[in-house]
């Protein structure tokens, strides 16, 4: 049923992504691919994997932006992006087959790959570019919030988090329940001013982003660097003299 659930359950699961600590290492994207290519959405097909024009299904893609123009206030922000499991997901309601659905119990947006006809309309309806077409299987695929991991009783409790969260080396990704005001993700959003992407579209994403903390404006950095002396043509002895006198 592609109508949105009228009753909401106890949980609203999602991610908090910290743009302050993300170092842009792409580990989240890689571990996501690793887990999901053999799980609920398997396979995440790659085409031309070892030659030119390679393409394939990834649930997580890491962009890098330059913010604040040039000068001391400029900064580089790494920006991982995946499905935000919106409260008002048009990708679900446009689906003609009932393959797309939003779970009432935890708000996760999923695709039933056995019902999908591969019309791609859901990808047209998503402003975040979170749904991708698997041209080999002929159906759409998307982030499941690692539904086959977070509820997996065969895993130790500490491992029951999405693959992207488990692997992040800079702890820039947090998983939790936004319906619980005392959960870690709810606290992070409150304390750090978590925000929605493209709030003007009205999709009301569940997952939030934390802004980079204010920089120190390059305080303490030397105002001007002295040019290195020209030692071209100097022999070993003169270079030693230069080193001694430079101390």
């Amino acid at each position: 049923m592609t109508s949105l659930p009228t009753v909401t359950g106890d949980k609203r699961l999602g991610l908090v992504i910290d743009l302050d600590t993300c170092v842009g290492c792409h580990a989240c994207a890689t571990n996501c691919k690793e887990w999901n290519t053999s799980g609920h959405s398997a396979p995440l097909t790659d085409v031309n994997a070892y030659q030119a024009e390679q393409r394939g299904v990834w649930f997580n893609r890491v962009f890098t932006y330059e913010v604040g123009g040039q000068g001391p206030s400029a900064r580089t922000v790494h920006f991982p992006k995946n499905c935000l499991h919106c409260e008002k997901p048009d990708c679900v309601t446009v689906c003609p087959t009932g393959a797309s659905y939003k779970r009432a119990e935890d708000g996760i947006v999923l695709i039933d790959h056995d019902k999908c006809i591969g019309c791609k309309l859901c990808s047209w309806a998503c402003p975040y570019g979170a749904r991708e077409y698997d041209e080999d299987v002929g159906v759409m695929k998307k982030c499941t919030l690692c539904i086959d991991k977070i509820y997996n009783k065969n895993l130790p409790e500490g491992d029951r988090v999405p693959a992207c969260v488990a692997t992040c080396p800079s702890k820039a990704r947090h998983f939790g329940d936004f319906a619980d005001p005392d959960s870690k993700v709810s606290q992070l959003v409150r304390e750090r001013g978590g925000f929605d992407l493209m709030p003007e579209t009205g999709y009301r994403p569940t997952s939030k982003y934390l802004p980079p903390r204010p920089g120190n404006g390059a305080n303490g950095a030397p105002k001007k660097l002295e040019p290195a002396p020209d030692l071209a043509g100097a022999g070993k002895f003169l270079r030693w003299v230069d080193r001694v006198l430079s101390r």
Partner: peptide
């Protein structure tokens, strides 16, 4: 990106 609070945003690297 929600980064307009810091000024102009420019794509530096594709994923």
């Amino acid at each position: 990106t929600g980064l307009d609070r810091f000024g102009e945003v420019r794509l530096l690297e594709m994923p």
